[in-house]
Design a protein around this nucleic acid. Sequence first.
DNA 1: CAGTGAGCGAGCTTCCGCTTGACTT
Length: 759
Amino acid sequence: MGENLVIVESPAKAKTIEKFLGKGFTVKSSFGHIRDLSKKKLGVDTSNGFAPNYEISADKKKVVAELTAEANKSSIVWLASDEDREGEAIAWHLSETLKLDSSKTRRIAFHEITKSAILAAIDSPRDIDMNLVNAQQARRILDRLVGFELSPILWKKVQPKLSAGRVQSVAVRLIVDREREIAAFKATSFYKVEGSFIPEKLKSTVKGSVAKKFSDESQAKAFLESCIDADFSIASIETKDATRTPTAPFTTSSLQQEAARKLGFSVSQTMTIAQRLYEAGLITYMRTDSVNLSSLALGAAKEFITKEYGAAYSHTRNYKTKTKGAQEAHEAIRPTYISNTTIEGNAGEKKLYSLIWKRTIASQMADAKLEKTTATISAANVSEPFIAESEKVVFDGFLKVYIESTDDELDAEELGLMPAIKVGQKMNPKVITATEKFTSRPARYTEASLVKKLEELGIGRPSTYAPTISTIMKRDYVIKGDKKGEPRNFNTFTLKAGKISEEAKTEIVGNEKGKLFAENIGIIVTDYLSENFDSILDYGFTAKVEEDFDQIACGNKVWNEVIRDFYTDFHQTVEDKLNDRTHTHVERRIGVDPVSGKALIARIGRFGPLVQKGENDDPDKQFASLAKGQLIENITLEEALKLFELPRIVGSYQGQTITASIGRFGPYVKYGSSFVSLGKTLDPHSVTEEEAIALIEEHKLKESKKHIATFGDIEVLNGRFGPYIKQGKNNYKIPKGTAAESLNEESCREIIEKATNTK
DNA sequence: CAGTGAGCGAGCTTCCGCTTGACTT
């Protein structure tokens, strides 16, 4: 006895704190929550005040046993989980599960992991805040009730194994709504006029553009005509000072966005790499919604910047978190040691660390000072002036280390420098063009821009952004993919040497990479839920219940009354829907096959979305699966008919017919019983016999290389993850350090035996 | 693993948020 036990949530944190506290203190980790509602059952007694039934999670039994043993050995147990709703609940669950005596239990919290912060926390312990715990229980129970009552309705009404929830269903809705905005979008065209001018007595050119958009061809042409023989000159020059301020240091969400834009990382990639950096002690905690930096970090940044760039570049700033529902249990994401400009690690780790380092340093640097010059070029009888702009960096400030990226693909062009021009100076037009432009349709979400949107709506938490995205993809509600751009014609008029010429040009528009597309089942589920549970699909639903949770947290509302108010109506609707005996049959009649005269109908079948040729009672009706990216709600007759062209006979190879089609794993060619994937470049509708044969032979060559050795029933093969051993249907890993070529029958059998025994 | 779409029925699926490993053919 006499020992102190401190329990935190993360093992990496435990290690650091143990060093600060030294002798007499043991620091252990709970690895997050240790108890939860039953995994399979509802776990909430809805007829008895919504009493929750908690169970120790299977993977936490060991942790709980260890913590109990430690607690029994200690005279004081310090519950040091995070100081937010979830953290408070973890502390309470610990005190309940470990059966801690209140006289030997202390609740403490610190926002930064520094020795002084921890010692200060130890000096001012408090009791567990039951209001905050109850707010968490309300959150947990509401999510359980919504998830476990809505999902079974979908199993019955739409398809088994589907899921619905407060967060995921709204995330899907965002994507479905956007998909429909895109489908409904009609681009309108206008003309933009730009000109290059040569100032009199100078050699350089000045580029200017007309602010007004001309709504049609005749207006644009009329304007160009007015420019013929016009005497242009500088009407005014204005110079303005401007400043640019650095953005706040990273939160989980902004890190995910910038890592996607600058490094091309997916949301989950960013989190995995950040986790490794955190565990290596290189950065602070990566799941946070706070932009706050510790005083220690502020001091270190100031010292580093002053030493490295000079005092003029230092500007200590404290950022305030604006995000709805932010709980601020941690610091912003920053390097643990500001002076570590680079780290050891793999390429991804180095890049992500560097990004975090730059953003943190920049946030503590001075504003950039700019000088913006705007020159107006006009002429008599020309109705609109040309505006030329330039920008000069007078003092780079934070721009020395970091420039934030934007999602806007059509980012403003780089502004050049303005030559020495004066008011009244004659400007000779070199060329003036009127280009037809189009309004741009809404952009599909990327993983990162979806996270940004969810954060703005206050939906989801830093720890759930990445898992939410993988859930909605796993359910086939949405798919991450690319879309090829399509050609679009546009007109240009060019005024040069006093003559106007017209030219029709083509551009490729709508090319998209790594975007989230709505899938058929996502659309159907969203429509069903919006129709029957509109309040939950409402973008403001989370914000509304969060207000209630806040009221519970400050003691103004009672948690199970809040739940009851919600549940009574909700559950009634659930009951009504379960009993209404309808099944959602979403189908769309696309049109009629001009050859057979049969109807084409798109719907969901047992194996996914399909097109059916012929009515349901037609004994000769045919089926074809929809390709990835084709939607029931907007597939065209032409596209649908094309689906029935497959499988298509391409030719023959070694006396066997080659056919081409699209299967579960994409387009393929087949000869005999062998399949070869067509990859992304070849189309099964158009692949030629020569292409197919070339592919087949290439594939055969690869297959022959796949085989390393055979020992009786054992094979050594080259696989996706390198060489492995195969016996019958089972695969076995080759131990590290063993070369696949060096294996013989005996060593293979040893490996197999070892693997079988350890299972 | 490259097609499929009868009908019945037992048994299963599912939420959000807090945390790491274990494991991959």
